[in-house]
Each structure stands twice: as structure tokens, then as C-alpha cells.
Amino acid sequence: MEPQAKIETKDLNLFYGTFHALTDVNIRIPARAVTAIIGPSGCGKSTLLRCFNRMNDLVEHTQVTGRIAIDDQNILEPQTDLIALRRKVGMVFQRPNVFSLSIYNNLKFGLRIHGMLSRRNEIRQSVRTGLEQVGLWDDLKDKLSANAHTLTLEQQQRLCIARVLILRPDIILLDEPCSALDPIATLRVEELLRVLCKDYTLVIVTHNMQQAARVSDFTGFMYLGRLVEFADTQKIFTNPAEQLTEDYIRGSFG
């Protein structure tokens, strides 16, 4: 039996105005694993990622048809609580987008906007757990009041991941999360993703095919708005079924 899908789309189509950005995408993203979405620029991989927490709603003239089920719940239904959805499906962006606040308040901020503010010692405990999960606690525990912008880019990106984790999400979407980081920081963040996938479902969009190969359990290849192939990462990188996938990952087009 196939592993249970955390996210499943059915005939998903998305238009930005008249531009048909996603065409008949059917994808099953397994729970508690890392799924990478790869493909050339403009293939729709970020658009697909943004569907999973309905971030595309923020883009004008966007029209979505089909079905996107998270835990069998269609999130495209009008009554979907978007705030709750975005808590459950967190997102990490290309450049770390920390707020110009203290490290502590960066983490507290999310709790506050999601109405999860509780007693001060509970907040402190959440902050500590969040920082521990991303491997920052030991380094930062004595300077939680420092401005988050004083951190290195890697630390900032880890802080952004902690800010997502503190809200106790199920799914974490990562859009090129390492493209602003140097190679060593990149490898360390990848290690973190491997640890996190034991408890969370991770979906990462990346231009870096070697990163997809290193970090993911499953890989989807997209081209011109379509999902060309989805399979185990090892299969994709050693013996893909589709010629188009083969040509892309070998670098023989593009």
C-alpha cells in the first residue's frame, strides 16, 4: 500500500490572469518526509508550493481549480480558515525575513498573531524549545534580547524555521531556503531538515539539484506548469522514467 499522503492535489490548475501557471497537477506528498520540487525557472514549482498554504490568494487575478487536500480536507473550500491553515502549513523563504525585533520577540510575534500567547513562562519554554530544535539555543540563550538582524544569515534562517516550528505546524514549505547561504551553512541547514522530517512534512523548492538529491526522500520534476514525474529521489537521480526528467537533471537542456 502506498504511504499515506499528507498533501494530495487532484487536477490542480492555476491561472495568473490569462497565464496558465499550473496544469492538471496531481501530486501526493507523503507525511514525515522531505519532498523536493525541482524544475527550470518559471516551471510553476514555487506556485505549486504556495498553493499548499494558499499564499497565491494574495496575488491578484489568481484563479485556482481542482482540489488540494491536506489530511483529506480540501483547503480550497471557501470556508477554510486561512489563519489556521497558515499556522498548520508554515513557510520559510529564500531570504531570511526576520523582523527588526529582538530574537525573543521574533519568536513571540508568531505566537501572538496566532493567538497562542499564554503565560510568560510558557512562552519562554516555547522559545527555548523552538531554538533548541533548530540548534540555536546554546549560542543565543544569553542574548535573546539582541536584534535578530545582528545574527548571521544562517542563524537568521534557522530563526525563521524556529518561528515556524514554535506554532506547532504539520507541514513546512521551504522556497529556496538555502540560496542566500554559503555552502557550509547550506549543508548544516540541510542536516536540520533531515532531523525535522522525522516530525514534520517538509516540501522544498530548489534550483539546486544536488541539494534536492541530498536532502529529499521524494522528488517531483515540473516543466511548463506540469508535474512531469514524481518518484523516490534515488530513482529520479539514477534512473528517471521520463526522458524530459533525464534531460533536465543531466543538464542537457535549459
Binding site: 539539484m209 544536488q210 537521480f237 539514477t238 534512473n239 533525464e246 543531466r250
Partner: peptide, 9 residues
């Protein structure tokens, strides 16, 4: 060169 797919094989 990080060969993949048929190149790697």
C-alpha cells in the same frame, strides 16, 4: 561533475 541518471550509470 555530479553526474546523474544515465551519465552516472
Amino acid at each position: 561533475q555530479q553526474p546523474v541518471a544515465s551519465d552516472l550509470r
